Simulated scan of single mutants.
Amino acid sequence: MLKLLSMELLKVKRSQALWMMFAVPLVVLLLNVLMTLKKISIGALGEAHWARLWMGSTMLWCYFMMPLYIALITSLLNGHEHKNQIWRLMLTLPVSRQLNAAKAVLAWLFVAGANAVLVGSVALTIALLGVAGASQQGAFVFPMLAFWAKVSLACIPILVIQHTIGWRVRDLVLPLAVGVMATIGITQIGSSEHWVRRAPSRR
């Protein structure tokens, strides 16, 4: 398994999949930073604005971009073998099942990496804005490590579904369609009165 995983890592070196791991989270951050700076100057930024920046970036990522990113990354990683019908050769080898698992693990590593890029880029942006004169009070109270761990684990079911689709379907349209449906479903389920919500704290 480790040899297969190392082989897959060599395949994605300088590939579109690697660039997407950085580009997609940074687009989310850029959008939220531009919206924040459009409303308020750097010197007036404070604790409430940092909380909104963290919340806006993580919500936009989890609700909208991450399901689409999972569809994109699983299709890109599996697309290498769809070219020239390499899957037919791979499935005749005794490591076909291990290769499938290695592809899934690699896709998860890319998603976990994208989550880390999002969290790290938000923290770095806040630090740079602090150098530019913004207040740093309450800027880093967001549970960065816990968020990364929870989101990276929670995405595994949808990643398995998308990996299975990408493994069997060469076209990118179906995985993206499933990603769009997942995005719509997340927004509807998350706003439902039946969704599990945190109980109010008692003081």
Rank of each mutant, 00 (worst) to 15 (best):
M1L: 08
L2V: 11
L2C: 13
S6C: 14
K11D: 08
R14N: 15
S15W: 09
S15A: 12
L18A: 15
M20S: 10
M20W: 12
M20R: 03
M21F: 06
F22T: 15
F22E: 12
V24L: 15
L26A: 10
L26N: 13
V27M: 15
V27W: 10
L29D: 04
L31F: 10
L34H: 14
K39Q: 08
G43C: 13
G43M: 11
A44N: 05
E47I: 10
A51W: 01
A51M: 13
G56L: 04
S57D: 06
T58Y: 02
Y63F: 03
M66T: 02
M66L: 04
P67I: 01
P67K: 00
Y69E: 04
A71R: 00
L72S: 02
L77C: 08
N78G: 13
H82T: 05
K83D: 15
K83G: 03
Q85E: 14
W87D: 03
L89M: 14
T92R: 03
L93R: 04
V95N: 12
S96N: 13
R97D: 09
V105R: 03
V105Y: 03
L109S: 15
F110E: 14
V111L: 13
A112F: 14
G113D: 12
G113Q: 05
A114I: 11
A116P: 14
A116L: 13
L118P: 05
V119D: 15
A123M: 14
T125A: 13
A127F: 09
V131K: 07
A132Q: 09
A134H: 06
G138Q: 04
G138W: 00
F142G: 00
P143L: 12
L145Y: 04
A146C: 06
K150L: 09
L153W: 07
A154G: 03
C155D: 03
I156C: 08
V160R: 11
Q162Y: 00
Q162A: 00
Q162G: 00
T164K: 07
G166R: 01
R168H: 07
V169T: 07
L174Q: 01
P175L: 06
G179R: 01
V180D: 01
V180L: 11
A182H: 05
T183R: 02
I184Y: 01
G185E: 06
T187G: 00
I189G: 00
S192L: 10
S192Q: 08
E193N: 11
W195S: 03
R197I: 09
P200E: 15
S201N: 13
R202Y: 09
R202W: 06
